[in-house]
């Protein structure tokens, strides 16, 4: 418990935590509501979205989908950056050394970091939900739509959002431990989340086995889970796998990333 409290205290007071959460909230508002609202009111909508789809995406009852649709790619990248920075910076600042000589076992120290990051991720998803709901209600009121509060589907979507965010958090933690620094961890993570998987999807159209692989890679699994809970219409969201299959892959990734990072942390010398 002491380790979680300590990590939470330092993450809570870390400007980077709030900058990243703030950036994500601005992004989700901008791309989820502001642009859609402008498109609905005099924009030149020449894309795939019909007016009805635009209205539907901004309805308060669809807020769950709005929260989850951004996480497979951009939201995930932000969570990954936060986790990679939180773990990787400790090597440069020498705080891992201070942590590991304070008393807790290495496993407990790692669990403290993971627990605190988990709480931050829950806060991030909850804030996203609240901000999106506020925006959706504001748009619905401005437009004079009949609207309903989110139902059970939103709970399912929020659960999916948490699982997707947990996977990207685990990925960030894993990279932070492997590279023992923030810069390379963030660079590699962003490269993977935003570039590599998209490139592979491009290659997948030429090579069947690569296409199958891309569906179950971390970003692919996240995209498929988001797609399965109604989060369509955003970059990185896919509909190739069932929600259960995608969720199982994500659980597997969480176990692998967190487990591998913990084993490395416990076994490696801190020099």
């Amino acid at each position: 418990m002491g380790s979680v409290k300590a990590e939470l205290l330092r993450l809570w007071k870390w400007p980077a935590t709030w900058v990243l959460i703030g950036v994500w909230l601005v992004m989700t508002l901008t791309f989820g509501y502001v642009f859609n609202y402008l498109a609905l009111n005099g924009g030149t909508n020449r894309g795939d979205l019909s007016q009805q789809q635009l209205i539907s995406s901004m309805q308060p009852e669809n807020v769950g989908a709005a929260v989850v649709r951004g996480l497979p790619m951009f939201g995930g990248a932000i969570v990954l950056v936060l986790a990679a920075l939180a773990v990787g910076s400790g090597y440069g600042w020498g705080t891992w050394k201070t942590t590991l000589t304070a008393g807790p076992r290495r496993v407990s120290a790692m669990a403290g970091t993971l627990g605190a990051l988990g709480i931050v991720v829950v806060v991030l998803v909850a804030l996203t939900f609240v901000v999106d709901l506020g925006a959706a209600v504001a748009v619905a009121s401005l437009e004079g739509w009949d609207w309903n509060l989110p139902g059970w589907a939103a709970v399912e979507a929020l659960g999916a959002a948490l699982l997707i965010a947990a996977m990207w958090t685990g990925f960030g933690v894993f990279l932070g431990v492997v590279t023992r620094g923030p810069a390379l961890a963030v660079g590699l993570g962003l490269m993977w989340a935003i570039v590599t998987e998209n490139l592979l999807r491009g290659v997948g159209s030429l090579l069947g086995p690569v296409e199958s692989l891309t569906k179950v890679l971390p970003g692919g699994s996240a995209g498929n889970l988001a797609g399965a809970v109604g989060g369509a219409g955003a970059p990185g969201v896919l509909t190739d796998l069932s929600g259960t299959t995608a969720a199982l892959f994500l659980v597997g990734y969480v176990v692998f990333f967190v487990g591998a990072a913990t084993v490395l942390k416990v076994r490696r010398d801190l020099v």
Partner: peptide, 9 residues
């Protein structure tokens, strides 16, 4: 050990 390791912020 080898200088203090603290959170700069």
């Amino acid at each position: 050990i080898e200088g203090p390791g603290f959170y700069p912020y």
